[in-house]
C-alpha cells in the first residue's frame, strides 16, 4: 500500500449498517440533547397561569433524559459492534493503540500538512484519516463518555440513593468533582465540547466530499466509499 492511498481499491464497503444507524440516531439524539439541555440550564420565559395547567420543564427534562438513554444505549451498541464488526468499526476505539506506531504519526503529519495548506495532495483512506480518527476518539468518544458519566451522576441525584444510577455514577462522581454544582458546570462545558466537535466534523466531511475525490457524506448513507467522477 502506498502512503498516499492512491492504490486503494474502490468501491469499498466501509460503514456497515449498524454503524450507519448508530451514526444518524446518535446525531439526532445529540441535537435533541443539546437543545433540551440548553433549555434546562437556561429555561424558556416563564409560563403564566396555574402550575397545574402546564408541565413545560417536566416535558423538556423528560425529553432530555429519554434522548440520553438512547444516546447511551447506542454508544454501548456501537462499542459491541467495534468488537464484532469490520476493521473500520474499530477505528474510533483503538486510536490510542494506533498512536503507538510511528507509521501512524507519519500519516498523521501528512494529513495535518494538507490541512495546513503545506501539502497539496490529500491522502486517500478507506475509513477515517489520522486526524479524523484522533478527533473521533479525543473529542467525540471521550466527550460522549464524559457526558454520559456526568449526566447519569446528576440523574442519579434525582432518582435518589439506592437507585442504580446513584450507585453506579452519583456516588463517586459528585465527590470527585467536589459538589453537584461543579458537575453541572462541567456538563455544560461538555456540551460545548461536543458542539465544537460537530462544527469541525460537519466542515471536514463536506470539505472532503468536495475536494478529496472520494465519496464521504453519501458513504454514511450507503456504506460504500467510491471514487467520484
Amino acid at each position: 500500500m502506498s502512503i498516499d492511498g492512491r492504490d486503494l481499491k474502490f468501491p469499498k464497503y466501509v460503514w456497515e449498517a449498524p454503524v450507519r444507524i448508530w451514526h444518524w440516531v446518535m446525531a439526532l439524539a445529540m441535537v435533541v440533547l443539546c437543545v433540551t439541555g440548553y433549555f434546562i440550564g437556561s429555561p424558556l420565559p416563564s409560563v403564566p397561569g396555574e402550575a397545574i395547567d402546564s408541565y413545560l420543564m417536566g416535558y423538556i427534562r423528560f425529553t432530555h433524559f429519554a434522548a440520553a438513554y438512547v444516546f447511551t444505549v447506542m454508544l454501548l451498541m456501537r462499542a459491541y459492534w467495534a468488537v464484532v464488526g469490520n476493521k473500520h468499526a474499530r477505528e474510533m476505539f483503538l486510536v490510542p493503540l494506533y498512536m503507538l506506531q510511528p507509521s501512524w504519526w507519519r500519516s498523521f503529519f501528512r494529513v495535518l500538512g494538507h490541512y495546513l495548506f503545506i501539502r497539496r495532495e490529500n491522502d486517500w483512506h478507506y475509513g477515517h484519516n489520522q486526524l479524523a480518527m484522533a478527533a473521533m476518539f479525543g473529542m467525540y468518544l471521550l466527550g460522549s463518555v464524559f457526558m454520559i458519566v456526568t449526566g447519569f451522576a446528576m440523574y442519579g441525584e434525582g432518582t435518589g440513593m439506592g437507585s442504580w444510577q446513584y450507585n453506579l455514577f452519583s456516588s463517586w462522581v459528585i465527590p470527585l468533582f467536589g459538589q453537584s454544582q461543579d458537575v453541572h458546570t462541567y456538563h455544560h462545558l461538555g456540551m460545548w465540547y461536543l458542539v465544537w466537535f460537530t462544527i469541525v466534523h460537519l466542515y471536514f466531511v463536506i470539505r472532503e466530499d468536495i475536494t478529496s475525490g472520494l465519496t464521504v457524506v453519501s458513504s454514511m448513507i450507503s456504506g460504500w466509499r467510491d471514487i467520484k467522477n
Partner: peptide, 17 residues
Amino acid sequence: NADKVGAVAAGVVGAAV
C-alpha cells in the same frame, strides 16, 4: 460561566472553519 466560554469558543471554531 461555562455557557459563555462554550459559546465564544464555538464562535472561534466556527470562524476558523
